[in-house]
Amino acid sequence: MIAIYKRELKAYFLTPIGYIFCGMYLAVSGLAFADTTLLEQSTSSLPTYFLYMMAIFAILIPLLTMKLFAEDRKSRTEQVLLTAPVSLTGMIMGKYFAALTVFAATFLVNSFNFVLLFQYGSPNTASIFSNILGLFLIGCAFIAIGAFLSALTENQLIAAVTSIGSIAAILVVSFVADKIGVQWVRVVLKWFSIINRYAPFTNQQLDITAIVYFFSLSAVFLFLTVRVYEKRRWS
């Protein structure tokens, strides 16, 4: 697992994809940050920044995950991974954590933006930390979704497009849910909605159920990825 993790991590920077992800992430998120805080001269629209970031994730995270499994399948290098003395779970976790590491490192660097705010005023530290934690967990879940969709195809473009679509749909669903008349559908959609789950973090609460929800979301999609490989071996 560690061997696969190390290789994947290195591969991000042997190809331009890792640099593109980090660069785009920092640039776009910097713009969003400046727009919502520095130019506003207040931190009152900080929640808007976090919403922007989720939308940015929808486009950037698929960039990170599209190649995870699709590339190995297309170039048949997966044969060496799947015939090596490594468990399926080990292989999939190795790849997942490699993508997660690139994401987490960029995320961490980007979080230093908030230090600026303390230069100009006294923002609510607790709110910032709970938001950052929530956003990070959402990022982890999105990577798992992207990884799952990458395992379904050998075409990286299809993996990317379906990931963008799925993540965008998950984000939009909470806005749509409000407009649905049937009560049980609305309740179910809201229960699943990431943005609704995220709401407590905006109010500086560490909502345990939400944390569990985000972790489970990652776990479910990683589990499904393992199942995809199991199934392919048997059919």
Partner: peptide, 10 residues
């Protein structure tokens, strides 16, 4: 395997 499982960028 039939197609050697190589990573071209390494």
């Amino acid at each position: 395997p039939e197609i050697p499982p190589l990573y071209p960028e390494m």
